[in-house]
């Protein structure tokens, strides 16, 4: 089994029920094809960097699961057919993964802030100016 994550975006104006239906559908696709859902975390509505199918907002969901490689094609086929899904990306996290041994993961929604430690960009571009000024 491999560990994958599928990060996808659904229409922003879906009701609670509709979001539940989306969750049920894709969990079902994974589980009925021999995969195990490790975590399913709705990240909530976010502003998009560019409009997608005329939506300025999107509702992001991150699903991690363990499955074989054949399941990805089936899951992505389902996502492509589903009108509620605007975009998705599947990334392989681990080549060798056993969900039984690792248990489920905590459903943490990451904060909206950038990671600390990056904000300090002191005098970033200035030192390129200090090139050699010896002409003799």
């Amino acid at each position: 089994m491999r560990k994958y994550e599928n990060f996808f975006m659904v229409q922003p104006d879906l009701s609670e029920d509709a979001l539940g239906a989306v969750a049920g559908k894709f969990r079902g696709v994974v589980e009925s094809n021999g995969g195990t859902v490790v975590s399913y975390v709705p990240w909530g509505k976010k502003k998009l960097a560019y409009p997608v199918k005329k939506n300025d907002y999107g509702y992001y969901i991150l699903m991690k699961f363990a499955a074989g490689p054949e399941l990805i094609a089936e899951l992505e086929r389902n996502m492509r057919l589903d009108e509620r899904v605007l975009k998705f990306i599947t990334v392989k996290l681990d080549d060798d993964y056993l969900p039984e041994q690792n248990g489920t993961e905590a459903d943490v929604v990451p904060s909206d802030e950038a990671q600390p430690g990056l904000a300090v960009r002191e005098d970033e571009d200035e030192d390129d100016v200090e090139l050699e000024d010896e002409e003799d």
Binding site: L62, E113, A114, G117, E130
Partner: peptide, 29 residues
Amino acid sequence: RRKKRFFRRRRVCRFCADSNLKIDYKDGK
């Protein structure tokens, strides 16, 4: 003339310096 030869502070990669920083495509900020 001040002779200023390539005064360039070589800084280190901030991801090497701090292993707590992670590069994640989901972390747009």
